[in-house]
């Protein structure tokens, strides 16, 4: 069944319109790579979070390309038979289901329903760095706000050590 027909079907039965995401757009906060973005218009329905490709780019850096969902060198092909789970056209825009994408790349999601906040964790490819015995790289600020990356110290031995004030 095409998406157009699904939409038309639900328009004929207004009481069921709430079941369909389309036409019931709401606000959400998406936290991706520990960065929060306010998204003015998302479609949430059972187990799905649809955002426009513009918002996808803004919140996650990923783009929908013919070869898959991509960011720089990183590209995750969308299984051909499952296009409908991932991609939808409505109101002249292309929408992507961020939950389906997260499942594809084995990315955990924490969700606060009452405030409509979605937190996307580390993808499997980010988590598997450890098993290669390569030290995962990171970039963090010092007291003055200047950032440092672990990889800045390549060529030296490094003791990486955590502490906390608590």
């Amino acid at each position: 069944m095409s998406w157009k027909r699904v939409t038309a079907f639900f328009c004929l039965f207004p009481s069921m319109a709430g079941v369909s995401a389309w036409g019931r757009q709401s606000h959400a906060t998406i936290i991706y790579d520990d960065r929060a973005s306010e998204i003015r218009s998302v479609n949430e329905e059972a187990g799905r979070l649809w955002i426009t490709t513009d918002d996808l780019k803004r919140a996650t850096g990923f783009e929908l390309k013919p070869q898959g969902i991509c960011r720089d060198e990183l590209c995750f092909p969308v299984p051909k038979s499952r296009q409908q789970e991932f991609r939808h056209e409505s109101a002249g825009k292309i929408w992507l289901n961020l939950v389906a994408f997260a499942n594809l790349v084995q990315q955990p999601i924490a969700h606060d329903e009452s405030l409509s906040i979605w937190y996307f964790g580390l993808r499997a490819d980010q988590r598997q760095v450890l098993s290669s015995l390569k030290a995962p790289d990171f970039t963090l600020p010092d007291m003055s706000g200047k950032t440092h990356s672990l990889s800045d110290f390549r060529g030296r031995k490094v003791l990486l050590v955590t502490w906390a004030s608590w």
Partner: peptide
């Protein structure tokens, strides 16, 4: 040739 990277 050694660095300490301490992270709070």
């Amino acid at each position: 040739n050694f660095e300490i990277v301490s992270v709070a």
